[in-house]
């Protein structure tokens, strides 16, 4: 019998698919002899959490800090570190910015394997096998964990919920330690008026083909007009046009919207690695040979400035 600890940050942006996916993983690793607990960081301010499919877990606890802790990137180093005592051999969370800070610190303290962008957690020969992309998503890397402890951040597809029931847990206060890392204050990002990328049903993404930081405004304005989240390719982030929290792809976020619009994005492998789950992809590019068209449902060859401007006039 091995113990696993799942960690989820429950905020206003948390989708029910996130609960379902964790419950599905917990159920599947049960076949390799893991008993799973769920630890929820709740920042909604309510006194209890309705944990969808919560019966998939042995124990569910929900904690809230006694003061602001930002996105929990450091708070969870201490909270998960305490909860994942020596008896826990697997910690699972999603590949969010916050988790990418506490998870490797917890892993280091247990000399555990750390997998940043795991897409597949499988049971094989009564043990776990985890797979994720490396080398700009050109190659998949698989680790057979055996008896090794691991901290795994999952960025794979949404999984269907197992059979089970919802449960309600009370939120308990866990004070934030006054340690060496202290949260001071949050400052909104310039584009924070926009819809968060996480869980967005529509995404308008721009790439190098947008051309400049000034022209990037057109992407933001159009996204706002059609109620879509703004996304970006690595190249656009590297140009400094948009914060890296908007990056879609292998080293950024994976998105599974109903509609993904790629504007001025050539379609490098590391970008395509982030949009495989989109239900419909529309690509706008001036180069008819751009590899983005190979995976697009709708292709529009032309000058994005003219096309987007025309679309804005019609709205």
């Amino acid at each position: 019998m091995k113990n696993a600890l799942f960690v989820l940050h429950n905020s206003a942006d948390t989708r029910s698919s996130e609960f379902a996916t964790l419950a599905a993983i917990a159920t599947s690793i049960g076949n390799a002899g893991y008993s799973s607990d769920l630890l929820i960081l709740d920042t909604t301010g309510s006194s209890s959490v309705n944990v969808k499919h919560g019966s998939a877990f042995r124990n569910v606890t929900a904690v809230a800090p006694d003061k602001a802790v930002g996105d929990g990137a450091d708070y969870l180093v201490h909270i998960v570190g305490k909860a994942a005592s020596a008896a826990v051999s697997l910690v699972v969370g999603f590949g969010t910015i916050s988790n990418r800070n506490w998870a490797p610190q917890v892993a280091a303290s247990f000399s555990a394997e750390f997998v940043t962008a795991c897409e597949l957690i499988e049971v094989a020969d009564n043990a776990l096998r985890v797979t994720g992309p490396v080398m700009g998503a050109m190659v998949q890397k698989t680790l057979s964990l055996g008896d090794r402890n691991a901290v795994v951040l999952y960025s794979g597809e949404n999984l269907a919920a197992p059979e089970g029931t919802d449960i309600v847990v009370e939120v308990s206060r866990e004070p934030a330690e006054q340690g060496a890392v202290r949260f001071v204050a949050s400052e909104a990002l310039p584009d924070s008026g926009g819809i968060p990328l996480r869980g967005a049903s529509k995404v308008i993404s721009g790439g190098l083909g947008i051309g400049s930081g000034e022209k990037w405004r057109l992407i933001e304005e159009f996204a706002a007009k059609v109620n879509a989240a703004v996304g970006a390719s690595r190249a656009a982030v590297e140009m400094g046009w948009v914060p890296s929290s908007r990056q879609v792809g292998f080293s950024g976020q994976k998105v599974s919207p109903d509609v993904y619009v790629a504007v001025g994005i050539s379609g490098a492998v590391h970008h395509l690695a982030g949009i495989g789950g989109a239900k419909k992809i529309v690509a706008i590019n001036k180069d008819p040979e751009a590899s983005i068209f190979k995976i697009a449902d709708v292709g529009i060859v032309g000058d994005y400035e003219q096309i987007v401007a025309a679309a804005m006039r019609k709205l």
Binding site: T131, M138, F293, V298, G299, G302
Partner: peptide, 26 residues
């Protein structure tokens, strides 16, 4: 570590290219 080729690309039946004016494309 064990390495394997990347996953296959997103499968689509065919890309529907939009012809015509910028207005049509918009």
């Amino acid at each position: 570590s064990k390495y394997s080729p990347k996953k296959g690309q997103r499968a689509i039946e065919a890309t529907k290219f939009i012809e015509g004016s910028d207005e049509d494309k918009a």
